[in-house]
Write a protein that binds this DNA or RNA. Structure first.
Lengths: 192, 192
DNA sequence: CGTGACCTTCAAAAGATTTTGAATGTTCAC
DNA sequence: GTGAACATTCAAAATCTTTTGAAGGTCACG
């Protein structure tokens, strides 16, 4: 039968998600293979199952460890290294989001902030030739940039909410969505 | 002076964010240029300011329109097309998230679901050779896959929260984060 | 120590993506 | 209608990314 085995299908599914989020597809595939293994696996097994070269396996395993989502473990009596997946999905998402998105937000906010300041000085320089136009253009653009900056703040907030160390509670979101006082919902109808 | 002008700096900053989210950098740059313009701009102006070719400008403007974040507008007495940016940032994020992430979630959930089912039939086939091992492996993997499936549900929830048409309220998140009853926070200590 | 098994590195090749601009459509003012 | 101006397409070229595998390093064991 030429059908893709269940495990590989899952690996590829997660791989696609991970690729979507800007990482290499293989990071997701390798992590998933380990996550679906009751025992830690050696690099050779990963190479074989996922059809990646030795070099690629080595590099990807390193990156997964860097992100703290895969660990190297010792298997007594065995010479080679074995790897196992971090299984706390929240912890993983926390860590990765924290690092990646925070960096992006910081850089973006800084650039936009600088842009606002620069706008002021550029307007001052041009004020001599056409004061009114220059001033109103500056005002317009500053206002719009403030809109973008407001958005970075919002991003920080959503991030903070998700990343809130372990304390994040599904029910909190649920109540936001369908929560108390939602018009048209009968509070006791379903408790699921 | 060789310093990058304020507007282009902002364009690039947004471009980086957009690239991070899996789109072409230029989509963000072009949108931002339009967003920071009091008047609609013709394609030629975009080409000039952002240093992209005619072909690229055309294709990118088309994609931006497809996502509903840029509009073509008529300027009376002018031959060429002019473009303006959608300015409702929420609306944009809604639309894009809705389309992109929903698709990803659907596909992922379907694949994982299929993987679970396949697991069952694979285990049935191997049951003849080593019943106990096969059964416990299946149980283990099914459990883990359920963990992933649970996560897609969570993703849907977060998405639903963000995308909730226009009704999304910052204060709701704020209160979740720093809200009433937060242990260790003095409600009146800082209002920033 | 020497040996063999394993792991890592890295430069070159393959592959994917982006960019270009000339050719081809399309549109509107006249 | 016609023509000039503009927009679009698309295949080739340039660029960026990923993948490979052989060379070299490391390590545990005898």
């Amino acid at each position: 039968m030429s059908e893709l085995p269940a495990v590989l299908r899952a690996c590829d599914a997660v791989g696609r998600v991970i690729e979507f989020w800007g990482f290499s597809r293989h990071l997701g595939r390798i992590w998933t293979l380990l996550y679906l293994s009751p025992e830690p696996l050696p690099a050779a097994e990963i190479q074989r199952q996922l059809a990646v070269s030795a070099g690629a396996a080595s590099m990807h395993l390193r990156e997964l460890q860097r992100w703290g989502v895969v660990r190297k473990v010792w298997v007594p009596g065995e010479r080679k290294d074995f790897y196992e997946a971090e299984t706390d999905l929240w912890k993983m998402v926390f860590r990765v989001m924290q690092e990646r998105e925070t960096k992006l937000l910081d850089e973006t906010e800084a650039a936009l902030q600088q842009s606002v300041e620069q706008l002021r000085s550029e307007a001052a320089q041009q004020a001599s030739s056409d004061p009114d136009t220059a001033a109103s253009l500056e005002a317009f653009r500053t206002e719009r940039l403030e809109g973008l900056l407001e958005f970075t703040r919002l991003g920080r907030m959503v991030l903070g909410m998700l990343v809130q160390d372990g304390g994040f509670d599904l029910r909190a979101i649920e109540s936001l969505l369908f929560g108390p006082g939602l018009p048209g919902s009968d509070a006791s109808a379903e408790d699921r």
